[in-house]
Nucleic acid binder design. Structure first.
Lengths: 129, 129
DNA sequence: CTGGTTGCAAACTCTTTGCAATCCT
DNA sequence: AGGATTGCAAAGAGTTTGCAACCAG
């Protein structure tokens, strides 16, 4: 957490109380969060500020954007273990998939890859019946 | 193309002229298209109709939804060869990635996978200088 | 004919921005 | 102090829906 704060300060941005609060929510969340979810957890912060905070964090390389199959954009700390996910199309439960194939792709393309998404949707064990 | 038309009819939906036109655009497109792009190519069709047509096609399993790293949702015929893509963050050029790892994932999760996304963003060879 | 479909308009939802007041450093 | 940041309000953009007119089967 301390090093995250350093990253914010190091970028030249001020460490304000809204930013600290958003950072903490991300830090304590097991799963990536939507802007709405972050805002719900910090109702005293204006939505626009959450929006701009996440935008800043994204620009300074602190958070990543993830688009799940439900089309909602979620955010997670880059420093959190890099993970992909499966979301249940029925109940919305999200499970991590501890696997990633970026390195394979890098071998077969001339692009310099900077971002990627690898997300799944399906039915979780509970919803298959 | 004929079999696509059969799929539409077979679903119980009427084969109207807007639907035929949208189907053709998808059929002749090398790459997945956004609703806006489809609508631009068929300006005589109302946007809402394009929207509902694609929604229908998606529901009857004719088209797939793809979310690229640019956050735009694109659509492509399921019958087109299943492909993933890289989009250049600078010029927007899109390249196909002829590779997919769904089967690997199926081995390590109890979810019944119905959809997945695997998309990349980076700099194309031209934009790396 | 007649229910499904379209076009139009409007409602929603989500994202983004301008600006005056306020807060870090 | 002074520029960065916030909250509020509103503008934009994208998505979705109701409804009367229209069309394929």
């Amino acid at each position: 957490m301390e090093n995250l704060i350093e990253i914010v300060k190091g970028s030249g941005a001020k460490l304000t109380s809204p930013r600290k609060k958003v950072l903490e929510k991300l830090y304590h969340s097991e799963l990536p969060l939507t802007l709405k979810e972050i805002h719900n957890e910090c109702k005293d912060i204006d939505f626009a500020s959450v929006y701009r905070t996440i935008k800043l964090f994204n620009e300074i390389g602190l958070v990543d954007e993830i688009t799940f199959a439900d089309k909602k954009i979620r955010y997670e700390l880059v420093s959190n273990l890099h993970n992909h996910h499966i979301i249940c199309s029925n109940c919305g439960e999200i499970e991590k998939v501890p696997i990633c194939f970026v390195s394979e792709i890098k071998k077969i393309t001339k692009y310099k890859i900077t971002k990627h998404t690898l997300e799944f949707m399906g039915l979780c064990p509970n919803c298959q019946n």
